[in-house]
């Protein structure tokens, strides 16, 4: 499942961008150092392959609904974790640009949930652990299915955590988890079975493909050290970025609003009366002909209650004015759009 811009706060989105960007830079450097040039076109076509393969849908037994391939794990198995991550990141980038799957800010989250987790958490710590030193067909199938399920569980947890930390949705952590995890258990199983099917087909047809990927990894350091090497620094960077953003937000209420308090238990979200609305109020006092009208019903409209957070400060007067102004602004924009379009056409013709 893709994370969406609309549910994201800049702090969370920004932090995940930093993580994703760090991962891409690290892997790109790694590819340049370690691997033959032939990886570059191969990564590109395999990314296109994942894209195309996602369009092959199939009926899930017993349910009648249909599923499709995610691809992160498959790419890690065929290309190794570094190239696999880059390829998956590029798939998600294209999806964000062309299909608005997620969005530009959410891209960082999606690269983390659907690329980073399968390639750098699940692949080294679960897939390779189960496969061990002596791979067999049975072990491989088990490893793939277990890995896919875990990858999707962690990925779904990522979506939940990112959403809750962003504080745009009202869903509390617990119920969101209960909503997401079971769905993704099913999706993970399907993904695992399909991936296992594809890999066993490939192993039958040309075992050297999978073996080549294994050998490549041996040539590098052992996977665990790779995992540690990239995982820990990136997590640290993420925490620091998020921290900086939230510090900036809390010390600077006019700027970015950070709703982490929602999660940490305190229901207080800082009241914007010191912020936008306050400065507006001042501005309004200076500009409006009847300065007090807009806020006349303030006291009456405020519904007291701890649950209300910032909502309580949005008063009737402001809302009415906001609605009216909003309507006017939209109207003006539609007009502007028409005028620009007509002007442009009269010039081109």
């Amino acid at each position: 499942m893709h994370m969406a811009d609309a549910l994201l706060s800049p702090a969370v989105g920004g932090a995940m961008w930093v993580v994703a960007g760090g991962g891409i830079t690290y892997c790109a450097g790694k590819i340049r150092d370690d691997m033959a040039d032939s990886r570059i076109p191969l990564m590109g076509v395999l990314a296109a392959f994942v894209f195309a393969a996602q369009m092959i849908n199939f009926t899930i037994p017993g349910t009648g609904s249909s599923g499709h391939l995610g691809g992160g794990l498959l790419l890690a198995i065929i290309l190794g974790p570094h190239a696999g991550f880059l390829a998956m990141a590029s798939v998600l980038t294209v999806q964000a640009l062309f299909f608005a799957d997620g969005g530009l800010l959410a891209l960082g989250c999606n690269i983390f949930n659907l690329g980073f987790i399968p390639c750098f958490v699940v692949y080294p710590y679960i897939y390779q652990l189960i496969i061990g030193q002596t791979p067999s067909r049975k072990k491989m199938t088990t490893a793939i299915i277990v890995s896919a399920v875990i990858a999707l569980q962690i990925g779904a947890l990522g979506v939940v955590t990112e959403t809750v930390f962003s504080g745009v949705s009202s869903l509390p952590f617990n119920s969101f988890v209960l909503l997401m995890q079971p769905i993704h258990l099913a999706i993970g199983l399907v993904e695992g079975m399909v991936t296992a099917g594809v890999v066993s087909f490939i192993v039958k047809a040309d075992p050297s493909i999978i073996l080549a990927a294994d050998r490549r990894d041996d040539q590098q350091q052992s996977e665990t050290s790779i995992g540690k090497k990239i995982l820990l620094p990136l997590l640290a960077v993420a925490v620091i970025t998020a921290g900086i953003f939230s510090w900036f937000a809390s010390s600077n209420p006019d700027g970015l609003e950070w709703s982490i308090y929602k999660v940490t238990g305190s229901e207080e979200v800082e009241a914007p009366e010191q912020g936008i609305h306050h400065s507006l109020e001042k501005l309004q006092e200076k500009t409006a002909l009847l300065p007090d009208y807009g806020f006349k019903n303030d006291e009456a409209a405020v519904v007291p209650g701890p649950e209300n957070g910032s909502g309580s400060t949005v008063a009737i007067g402001t809302s009415v004015a906001g609605l009216l102004g909003g309507a006017l602004v939209l109207l003006l924009m539609v007009l502007l759009g028409f005028i620009l379009k007509i002007k442009r056409h009269s010039r081109t013709e």
Partner: peptide
């Protein structure tokens, strides 16, 4: 911006 315009109008 809309709030501002709105305020001016309701004013």
């Amino acid at each position: 911006l809309p709030q501002l315009i709105g305020n001016l109008l309701t004013g």
